[in-house]
Computed example of a mutant assay.
Amino acid sequence: MMAMPIACSAFRRTALVLALVAGAMPAFAQESANQSADQSATQIASSQPAGEVVLIPNRVIYPGETIELAALKQVTLMAGKQKPDAVATRAEELNGKIAKRTLLPGRYIPTTAIREAWLVEQGAAVQVFFIAGGLTISATAVTLQPGAAGDLVKVRNIDSGKILSGTVMADGSIRVSAS
C-alpha cells in the first residue's frame, strides 16, 4: 500500500520538474549593483552598465498586456553565462509592445513572445486606398482582423460587401493593390 503513494509522489515531482524546465529558461543573472527594486522607467532606459545586460519581467505580464518599463528589471548576466539568441535585451525592443503569452518574472523574454500594438482593431471602420499612378480610389471598409503597421489584413468594403486584402499603413489606413 505504501509503494503506490511514493511512486505517485515521485511521478508528480518529475512532472513538475519537467513542466518548470520546459516552461521557460531562467535568466541566470544578478541584479546590477546600482539598481533598486523600484527603479523608474527612465533609469532603466538610461543606465546601461558594462557587460551583457538583459531586461526581465519583475512581475507576471499576461497575454494582451502592454509591456511598460516599470514592469521590467535590468540584470547583468553572471560571468560565463551568455544569453540565448532571439531574446529581447533593450528597452526599445519592449516598451509599448504587447505580450503574446504569459511572461514570468526572472525569465528571458523571447522576441517571439511579443508583438507590435495593433493600429487597426477587428471590426473598426477604416479608409481603404488604391493608388496607381495619378489614380486614387478610396472607400470605407470594416476590418475582419486586427493588424499592426505593415501587416496584411482582410477588410470588407461597406458599399459592395467585397472582401479585399491590404497592407496596414502607419496612419491606420489600408492600402490595396491590383491583383
Rank of each mutant, 00 (worst) to 15 (best):
P5F: 13
P5L: 13
A7G: 06
A10E: 08
A10T: 05
F11N: 05
R12C: 06
R12P: 03
T14G: 14
T14E: 15
A15R: 09
A15C: 13
A15H: 05
A15K: 07
L16V: 11
L16R: 10
V17Q: 04
V17I: 10
A19G: 05
V21Q: 09
G23R: 08
M25Y: 05
F28W: 00
S32V: 00
S32M: 01
N34D: 13
Q35K: 09
Q35W: 08
A37D: 06
A37P: 00
Q39A: 07
Q39C: 07
S40D: 12
A41Q: 05
A41S: 10
A41V: 01
T42I: 10
Q43I: 00
I44K: 01
I44P: 00
A45I: 05
S46Y: 10
S46L: 13
Q48T: 14
P49D: 13
P49G: 04
G51F: 07
G51V: 05
E52S: 09
E52C: 08
V53D: 03
V54W: 03
L55N: 02
I56D: 00
N58T: 11
N58S: 10
R59W: 14
V60P: 01
I61T: 06
P63A: 12
P63I: 10
P63C: 12
G64M: 02
G64T: 02
E65S: 04
I67H: 07
E68H: 15
A70F: 14
A70P: 11
A70V: 14
A70R: 15
L72A: 00
L72C: 06
K73N: 07
K73C: 00
K73P: 01
V75I: 10
T76P: 02
L77P: 03
M78K: 14
G80D: 15
G80N: 15
K81Q: 12
Q82N: 12
Q82W: 14
K83C: 07
P84S: 11
A86S: 14
A86V: 09
V87G: 03
A88Y: 04
A88G: 04
E92T: 05
G96L: 01
I98T: 06
K100Q: 14
K100M: 13
L103Y: 03
L104G: 07
P105K: 02
P105H: 04
G106D: 05
Y108M: 05
I109A: 00
P110D: 01
T111S: 15
T111I: 15
T112I: 15
T112K: 14
I114N: 01
R115H: 14
A117V: 04
A117W: 10
W118C: 05
L119V: 06
V120L: 02
V120N: 00
V120M: 02
E121D: 12
Q122W: 06
Q122G: 09
G123C: 09
G123H: 08
G123L: 06
A124C: 08
A125N: 13
V126D: 01
V126K: 00
V126E: 01
Q127T: 09
Q127M: 08
Q127L: 08
V128F: 02
V128T: 02
V128H: 02
G133L: 12
G133Y: 09
L135V: 08
L135T: 10
T136Q: 12
T136R: 13
S138H: 07
S138K: 03
